[in-house]
Computed example of a mutant assay.
Amino acid sequence: MPDAPDPYWWRDAEPARPRRVEGGIQINSARGKVARTWWSGRFLAVLEEVVVGGRLARGKTYARAGQILSLDVDAGGAVAQVQGSRPKPYAVRVGIPAYGKAEWAEITGYLAEDASYAAALLGGEMPRGIEDVFARAGLALFPAGPRDLVMDCTCPDVAVPCKHLAAVFYVLAERFDADPFQMLALRGRDRETLLDELRERRAAAAPAAPGAGSLEDVMDAYFTAGPGLGQRLAGPPTPSDALLDQLPEFPVAVRGAPLTEVLRPAYRALGTGSES
């Protein structure tokens, strides 16, 4: 005879309402769409279209209620603790392949070719053409399909994603709004490392200025006038006693002669000595 159904099956089922959380991580969007930037919107659109279908919306209530206790993003994925209706929070993991040094070297090389990419990233923006940059390297920035995403949750829900996973996706999207480097961090490159590499590549590719050299190499010619400059600056010779003609008349005379005329021979003699 088949086993009789367990009359207490409902004890193992999760109640509809989650336990209330104080100080949890919640999204700012109270209604409507969550993403504010094109890149976080693209992230959610990819999930909805090619990864999880229409089940993503199940997590909005959890995300808005602040049921996520913790969320850490690192190369290769994100891990979170989500409070459901049971006493123990559920452990949630979202995995995405992280690229290695060789792959990121190729991506960074393409990014360095256009200064607008680095400028956008420095300004807290994800460049519009960044997906094309990844595609040139044969890679993808956003999840490329179901095989590009791993989703785990310790809850008893058999649906994937469950509402706990979906809630994490919405919080991730809002984090990407505020910091696009979080999206790049999932793929294996943090902000400081990427920007340092971009600066180095841009500096190495910049052409040297004509005649550039060390300060020591140019010191001898630093104050040298250019061709013809000395001739252009030179004016008519000034008599050495011209200063005496600019002085006011002195009421003092020496043996009946004005003081300026007494001094004039001396000024002329000094002028003649400086020219020799």
Rank of each mutant, 00 (worst) to 15 (best):
G41N: 11
Y110Q: 12
R191F: 06
D190F: 00
A57D: 09
W39V: 15
G77V: 00
E106I: 04
L233I: 10
F176S: 06
Q67N: 14
L122Q: 13
C153L: 08
A63R: 02
R36P: 01
Q231L: 10
D179P: 10
D12C: 03
L244F: 03
A257D: 00
R189H: 03
S40Q: 09
V50M: 00
G138I: 07
C155A: 08
R199G: 09
F43G: 01
T224W: 02
G123N: 13
G53D: 06
L141D: 05
L56T: 03
G273I: 15
A269Q: 10
D3L: 14
W38A: 13
G24N: 01
T108H: 06
T238H: 11
D114K: 09
S240Y: 14
A269M: 11
D245P: 00
P15I: 14
F169Q: 01
E249D: 14
A57W: 11
P146G: 09
A144K: 08
A112L: 03
Q246A: 12
W9D: 03
V171C: 02
A159C: 01
D179I: 14
D12H: 12
R201T: 13
G123H: 11
R191Y: 02
R11K: 09
R232F: 15
C153Q: 05
R64I: 04
R19H: 13
E261N: 04
V92L: 05
A4N: 03
A185Q: 06
Y222P: 00
A178S: 09
V168I: 04
D179R: 14
G256I: 05
D196H: 12
S85I: 10
G23W: 12
T37M: 00
A166G: 05
L149D: 01
Y90P: 05
R175C: 04
S29E: 10
P7G: 09
